[in-house]
């Protein structure tokens, strides 16, 4: 990491720590962090491995249910509920990934979409999801059984800590020996194979990490908003995370974060427009694809490099 990047990360961390005290609305901030983590996890696949999953909501949403159920029905402490959601999503990711990495390109996307639709309909039918109502008033509980998270600011710092951990895992993965192989697979899969790398195994591990962290994001979301619902596992959610990542800049480290923040902000502050929000988001996406295909962060990085 060079000096400028360190300063940038440091400044962002300070902003995140100070946000609730300078007028940031904690529920909104938590939502941004949850979706940012979701998008960063998704970006590990599309941006650094070259795999377009069109079913990532199944990990996000299922983990929200796992975590919500564990906190509500079993009374687990929040950190354990999040761990459970993460592991559950990672295990699902193993099976889904095992099936999906055998196919490439659009077929890979279709396999993930089909499986996520199966998960959606299981969630509609299953007894513990609350079907149309969802799991409501999920308790936040006490961190380690000691510190109550009922206060939004306290909860915000818990979410921030978990987010930072997840973000670090992604950063580490990208900048690791494993990450180097992932990038080579993204760049030229047959060549990586011909150098002796079992590309399917590398893709599978990347898929499991991505699914687990998407689950971590979903679990956090269930706790902070007190709700796990069918929206979280729907295909629209899978589409939204694609949108966030592309808008922010896929294959960049901060892009998905910025993309998620932009989309959540739009959804929040434009909610007065009703269903027009979807249209506005659609137009934003079209403009993004036409005018700055690299995404916000990607475009900035490109301009800086060209200078």
């Amino acid at each position: 990491m060079d000096k400028r990047t360190k300063i940038l990360y440091g400044a962002l961390l300070l902003v995140a720590l100070a946000a609730p005290f300078v007028g940031g609305y904690p529920i909104f901030l938590m939502k941004v962090l949850c979706f940012a983590l979701f998008a960063c996890a998704f970006n590990l696949l599309i941006g650094f491995t070259g795999l377009l999953s069109f079913g990532h909501a199944m990990f996000f949403g299922s983990a929200a249910y796992f975590c919500g159920h564990a906190a509500k029905a079993w009374g687990l402490t929040p950190e354990l509920a999040v761990v459970l959601g993460t592991l559950g999503a990672a295990i699902m990711g193993y099976f889904v990934g095992w099936l999906a990495v055998r196919r490439q390109g659009i077929y890979f996307a279709m396999v993930t979409l089909a499986l996520s639709q199966m998960v959606y309909f299981i969630c509609v039918q299953a007894p513990f999801t609350g079907a149309e109502d969802g799991l409501q008033s999920v308790p936040r509980g006490k961190l380690l059984g000691l510190i109550s998270l009922r206060d939004d600011t306290a909860m915000y710092y818990f979410v921030l800590a978990v987010f930072l951990f997840g973000f670090y895992v992604i950063y580490r993965t990208i900048h690791s020996p494993f990450g180097q192989v992932l990038k080579s697979i993204r760049e030229n899969e047959p060549r990586a194979l011909s150098l002796g790398y079992d590309v399917d195994k590398y893709k599978l591990l990347a898929f499991v990490i991505s699914a687990g962290l998407a689950g971590m994001a979903g679990a956090l979301k269930a706790l902070s908003l007190g709700l796990a619902s069918l929206t979280d596992v729907s295909w629209q959610m899978s589409g939204e995370v694609v949108l966030m990542t592309l808008l922010g800049g896929m294959g960049t480290i901060l892009g998905p974060f910025l993309g998620a923040a932009t989309i959540i902000t739009m959804q929040n502050y434009l909610s007065g427009f009703g269903s027009w929000v979807t249209v506005i988001m659609g137009i934003t996406f079209v403009v993004c694809v036409l005018a700055f295909r690299r995404g916000i962060v990607g475009e900035i990085a490109y301009r800086l490099k060209a200078k």
Binding site: H175, P177, Q180, V181, G196
Partner: peptide, 13 residues
């Protein structure tokens, strides 16, 4: 590849 650490995602590059 010969290092055998190519699955080590927790290690720094």
């Amino acid at each position: 590849r010969k290092l055998g650490t190519s699955f080590h995602f927790w290690k720094s590059d």
